[in-house]
Amino acid sequence: MSPEELSSIHPRLYHITRPSALSSIKEHGLLPASDLLTLFDVPSAQRELLETRRRPVSVTIKHPAYGQVTLTDNAPLSEVALSKCLDDDLEPWDWIRLLNERVFFWVDEKSLNSHLRANIKHGEQRVVLEFDTLSLVSTCNKRIELAAINTGSTIRRPARRGLSTFAPAHLYSYREWQQLRGGRDRIKELTVKGTVQDIDAHLIGHYTV
């Protein structure tokens, strides 16, 4: 799927963060949890737990030079539920590690708002970053992956998932991707494996919710 085809279907991408993370994002880019753990020199034993186990609450990590950042909880995941819906001989910790290697974007406002309604706790502020799809995807093209499910949730009859859930966008046209998914699915998430740099080059704006 070329950046042009993908942007014609979903011209905007949305990422949710905390107000306190904006300065770090401006400096370092959007980093997946695994890259943040590397940047912040988190000890290997603690790192292994944070990368492979469910985080029922958000976790703050600190660094003498970079200050502190918060790793968002993955409370909507259940390790028990994951064990029943994973393919390719994956274990729950394998799936959680895959999630921690990626930066996630919602591809439309309907999915974004549904997530916000379901997951923002009373009194907690979040910032929505809105990106130009063509600009971002053109830069990260070979690292863009598409998913037809909410990969970070196992609430309500969790969909089956495995190594093919994250489909490299550049390998397929949109129609080919749909055919792989049975012909009817639509893109639910767009992910980037690794860090998204030069945020200002792709950012349209942001707003607090």
Rank of each mutant, 00 (worst) to 15 (best):
T151I: 12
N119K: 09
E109H: 08
R53E: 13
V69Q: 05
V128M: 05
K110D: 14
S153W: 07
I155P: 11
L50I: 05
L13I: 10
A148I: 05
P64G: 05
D94N: 08
F105S: 04
S114A: 13
D89I: 03
P64A: 08
L13R: 15
R117A: 15
D89R: 12
R117N: 12
F104P: 00
S24P: 02
V59G: 03
C140A: 15
L31H: 07
S7I: 01
V127R: 02
A65E: 13
L86K: 00
K142R: 15
R18I: 12
S78W: 00
E101Y: 09
P11Y: 02
E79G: 10
T60V: 12
C85N: 07
P56R: 02
L129P: 04
V107I: 09
S83G: 04
R55T: 05
D35S: 11
L39F: 13
I149L: 13
S78N: 03
F40K: 04
K62N: 12
R97F: 08
L134M: 15
Y66F: 15
R12W: 07
Q46W: 10
L98I: 13
E124M: 07
A118W: 01
D132F: 01
N119Y: 15
E48K: 08
T52S: 07
S153Y: 06
F104C: 08
R54H: 06
A65L: 13
P76L: 00
T60C: 10
E79M: 14
S8P: 01
D94H: 13
Q125L: 10
S20P: 05
I144A: 04
T154Q: 00
L50E: 06
F40V: 04
I25N: 03
S135W: 05
A75P: 08
S8Q: 10
F104L: 09
T70A: 09
L86Y: 00
K110F: 10
G67D: 05
D87I: 13
G29I: 01
E79L: 06
E27L: 12
F131P: 06
N113T: 10
L77F: 00
S7F: 00
V103N: 02
E27T: 09
F131Y: 05
L71H: 03
R18M: 13
A148K: 12
K84S: 15
E101T: 10
P19Y: 05
V137G: 06
D94G: 01
H122S: 15
N100A: 03
V42H: 01
L136Y: 07
D88M: 04
L71F: 04
S23K: 15
S24G: 09
L37H: 06
V69N: 05
N74T: 11
H28M: 14
N150A: 14
S58Y: 01
S135R: 11
N100G: 13
P43S: 04
A81D: 15
F40W: 01
R97Q: 10
T38M: 07
H63C: 02
T139D: 11
V80S: 11
N141G: 07
D108V: 01
P92E: 04
L31T: 09
A118E: 11
L86T: 02
T139Q: 12
H10S: 06
S135M: 08
E124W: 07
A148E: 14
P43H: 07
T60Y: 08
L146N: 02
L39A: 15
P43V: 03
D88S: 01
V80Q: 09
N100E: 03
E91I: 07
E124P: 06
L86F: 04
A33L: 14
A75N: 13
A65V: 13
P92F: 03
N100M: 02
L90C: 03
R126Y: 01
F40Y: 15
